[in-house]
């Protein structure tokens, strides 16, 4: 049982801001999977996502005094993680889909009643993941934040540093783009 597992998030943050490593570790434990999930699809690399998840939390520790309670802590983490990923993508100028397919047995658990149903489901998931990976980064990230991480339009606007009108238009284009790339 983690020492701060029963603490409210606000209390963990306040203690971490005063240098409490155990309190910050609790925050890491609570948010690491979401941040990793977002990063692995944004970067399309499990190795990069693992490294960037660590770097995102290290950056968050250094910048803790700049977090304000008006925003959700997770929204702030997504902002940090997204910036880390974009820096990496810009540096590497990565365009090809890599890595995620290779780990499909480990990363895509697929309970199904029959082997045929399981295969069909797995193929459907793969098709969707591939279509998502082929989208422009700008469209992929907004779909991840809205459809998978369930952020509100306001939170998405904060993470991406855009207006609400841009969230609406970009999300619509991203959805249309994904539908076009989906296998029929």
């Amino acid at each position: 049982m983690r020492a701060f597992s029963h603490f409210e998030e606000s209390e963990c943050i306040a203690r971490a801001q005063h240098g409490d490593v155990a309190a910050f570790s609790e925050l890491v434990a609570r948010h690491q999977d979401r941040i990793y999930r977002f990063l692995v699809r944004l970067t399309r690399s499990t190795d990069d996502a693992r490294d960037l998840t660590q770097e995102s939390f290290l950056h968050a520790w250094e910048a803790l005094e700049r977090w304000r309670p008006e925003a959700r802590f997770s929204t702030w983490l997504f902002q940090i993680a997204r910036n880390q990923a974009l820096d990496l993508l810009r540096r590497s100028k990565r365009a090809e889909f890599v890595a995620l397919e290779d780990d499909d047995d480990a990363t895509l658990p697929c309970p199904a009643p029959t082997p045929e149903a399981a295969l069909e489901t797995r193929q459907r998931f793969h098709g969707l993941e591939r279509a998502l990976a082929r989208l422009p980064t700008e469209h992929r990230e907004i779909l991840l934040l809205r459809e998978i991480e369930a952020l509100s339009y306001e939170e998405i606007a904060a993470v991406l540093d855009i207006g609400l009108g841009t969230v609406k238009s970009r999300l619509a284009r991203a959805r249309a783009g994904l539908l076009e790339k989906m296998p029929r």
């Binding site: 890491v28 434990a29 690491q32 999977d33 692995v40 998840t53 780990d103 480990a106 990363t107 658990p109």
Partner: peptide, 12 residues
């Protein structure tokens, strides 16, 4: 979509 898993405890 199934969530890709980090598979380790990052805090330590």
């Amino acid at each position: 979509l199934p969530s890709p898993a980090l598979g380790l405890d990052l805090a330590p």
